[in-house]
Simulated scan of single mutants.
Amino acid sequence: MIDALTLDQVRTFVVVAESGSFRSGATRLSRVQSAVSHAIANLEAELGVSLFDRTGHRPVLTPEGQALLSNARDVLLRVDAMRARARGMGEGVELELSLIVDVLFPLATVGGALREMRTVYPSVAIRLAVSPLGGPLEGLINRRFTLGIMAGEIFPDPAISRRALAEVQMIAVVAAEHPLGLNAGRVTVASPDLADHLQIVLSDPSQRSEGRDFGVLSPQTCRVSSQDAKHALILAGLGWGRLPEWQVERDLAEGRLVRLPTASLGRDSQLPMEVYLVHRIDEPLGPAARVFGDALARLCGR
């Protein structure tokens, strides 16, 4: 009966297949060869198929053995993952790392830190969201996320612990073919002139900025719900706006976007914005979150 299969038999099958012989498999398993041969024979009897052709000098996988080897490896992988997860529970390791990231922070850096965390705690699941403005703070306050990455100083909260990570340079840009872009390098644009053109602005999904606007200089606005939409509309020449340097660096280098020719939006149309790793003070971070935070800080410091 298939129900009589044991993990030991499955593991023995995989080790023999990978080592190329019963003798080598026995050495790897620290067993006598007869015990390994017996385990494989029992497994073949349970499955009703021959896994190895034993007619030659060395055992060779049969077509059935080849087909079932991937299943056996998958079984062992899942069992090992379950054991690691159970061990993590006993050590206080989180079952899940939930993270909400400000749209202004590069996800590639977050991915690098998550990869490092997973090498230490492979059983920890990951849940990630991206949100602008008050979204990360709201996610922490409502306990929907354990960790957040917040940009700027506009939403201070005494219940939130902050760890400075890096500066994101925000650059005021416009498409090269936009009327404001055509004057770049020749004419300096004043604030009243910016107000004559459409500004592309991110909407806040939270209620944190209700009744307030941040960095909005034009009465003409196009409000969008995502950073990618803002980037795309500015590239299309619809209007102007601020975008993080990491997102527009290539567009500026290749001439699709230009810096706004104005001194109203920082020197060289650029302003730094501090980015923080944040979490609730009343919810201390677990081992996986701490490893992630340290990895993120190290990557930001490069």
Rank of each mutant, 00 (worst) to 15 (best):
R127K: 14
L77K: 03
A288K: 13
A172F: 02
L137F: 05
P284C: 03
R212Y: 09
S19W: 06
E94Y: 12
D3R: 12
A45V: 05
P122D: 08
D8Y: 06
E96S: 13
G211L: 03
P136Y: 10
R302I: 08
S225M: 15
T6C: 09
M1N: 13
H231Y: 15
G111R: 14
L235M: 04
S269D: 01
D80H: 14
S123F: 09
V79Q: 15
D157Q: 07
A190F: 02
W246E: 09
L285T: 13
L198Y: 05
E46Y: 06
R290P: 07
T12S: 07
Q220S: 07
M150G: 08
D74M: 11
Q247L: 03
E138T: 05
R162C: 01
A289G: 08
S70V: 10
L76E: 13
S218E: 01
S19G: 04
I160V: 11
A190Y: 01
Q66F: 14
L99E: 00
L95Q: 06
G90N: 15
R73C: 09
V189W: 07
N71W: 00
P244H: 02
V189H: 07
V168K: 05
V224M: 11
S209R: 09
H279V: 10
P122F: 10
R83H: 14
A41Y: 15
D80W: 09
R162S: 05
A175K: 12
L137N: 03
L180C: 10
L217T: 00
D282W: 08
I100R: 06
S19Y: 08
D102N: 15
A125Y: 00
V32I: 13
D294A: 14
